[in-house]
Design a protein around this nucleic acid. Structure first.
Lengths: 223, 223
DNA sequence: AAAAGACAAGTTGTATACAAGTATTCAAGA
DNA sequence: TCTTGAATACTTGTATACAACTTGTCTTTT
């Protein structure tokens, strides 16, 4: 499995290398405990140390590797870590949605619906990568629209990992059939309904249910 | 005002430059809208572009500057942004404390009490920098002890900013007299009491009160 | 006078070079 | 056989070099 090249548009060599390594680490093609050196990785990607160094800094900031005196130690993302990632996503997204509850979201809701439509289209075409992309966009849009600088930066700090995890789990979920994916897409409609209601308690309930389901989906896709 | 050199122990030239720039940006010695170029900053710090580049990446990740094609644009931290920072701190810390509620925290509580003692000693000696350091350590300890990898990384992503903001606001608060600082130190004791009780609702109430107070302190120190 | 185009200065992204420090290995001696 | 020590190879952090691109200015042309 390769990182979708379309997702690398406009990114530097360093970010590109980071994306490939990130996928392989989460993928466990590169295993926890392994030691990466700037020189070896540079040779592997046929690049110089500069962009590799940038990639290492990015991955270290995401906690996927740990920079030490002699080599970068791969930390990896086991199931526990992924569940922790969902904890954080829940924290960020419920904050964002509570903030949106008070506003007029008409324009955003239209775009969210369009996104869900694209998800369903992706199911029809059997296009996993497109589905993952739209799923990601859906959640990112909510966080962005909340208009909270710091929350947005928190999201940015896990953005790449979330995108990659979504790519992998979506690929797994697709193997459970199209009905399952339809169900996943429909789950997003409940979120839209919540936001449309503008009722804070109802939104809280829906977001909670959403991530409880996601957690269950996660367990299912990795067993 | 300079960044305390003791806080730079073990950090690379790049992190060091980042710390100095960070202080000046939050300080508004460097104003929003200004454009920094790698070459000029390198010359200023008598370093090469490599560490400056690293510093820019760090500051961009923290949202203090925005990397563009031609130069880095200073974003800065106005009062609104700082309040947003407190929102995030509240989010992180209440999550961490809720997690701690279920555990046995005897050892940690001792260390927290020691930290508060050091804060009071710092007040006695009129040592602002030491106070800020202990205050910072207090909150970092709580997040770390929660033992949640992802929350820890969220904290890491705002760590440097929080530290610097604390340094500046503490310096301001000191001008309001020692009684005020004693009061700030005592506030931390209520947090310890909460954690000792192990009661989730009580903890929630205390953390909420703590950050409400901090927000008020913030307004006071910047007006 | 105004517009268009070429040129010059400055910027980043990447590659390479160098220096300081660390781990490993291998050999020699107890 | 085990320990000790020196040498070697490899690591990162920083400095410098180069290429591609952007921007603003100045000249030339209409």
């Amino acid at each position: 499995m390769h990182y979708p090249s379309a997702w690398l548009q406009g990114s530097s060599r360093g970010e590109s290398i980071a994306s490939h390594l990130r996928l392989q680490i989460i993928n466990e093609s590169i295993k926890p405990g392994e030691i990466l050196s700037e020189n070896k990785v540079a040779e592997l990607f046929e690049a110089s140390r500069s962009p590799v160094r940038e990639a290492f800094k990015l991955l270290a900031g995401e906690g996927l590797i740990r920079l030490e005196r002699m080599g970068a130690v791969v930390v990896g993302l086991d199931l526990t870590h992924i569940q922790e990632l969902y904890d954080v996503r829940y924290l960020i997204e419920s904050f964002a949605q509570q903030r949106l509850a008070k506003r007029d979201n008409a324009a955003m809701l239209v775009r969210l619906e369009q996104t869900v439509d694209r998800m369903k289209l992706a199911v029809k075409h059997g296009d996993e990568v497109e589905f993952a992309f739209q799923d990601f966009s859906f959640h990112e849009m909510i966080v962005q629209e909340a208009g909270h600088t710091r929350i947005w930066h928190l999201w940015n700090s896990i953005r790449s990992i979330v995108r990659t995890v979504m790519l992998l789990t979506t690929a797994n979920s697709f193997r459970q059939g199209k009905e399952r994916m339809e169900w996943v897409a429909d789950k997003h409609l409940t979120v839209i309904e919540g936001l449309r209601s503008g009722n804070e308690e109802q939104i809280a309930k829906i977001v909670k249910a959403y991530f409880a389901d996601s957690d269950e989906t996660l367990g299912r896709s990795l067993s």
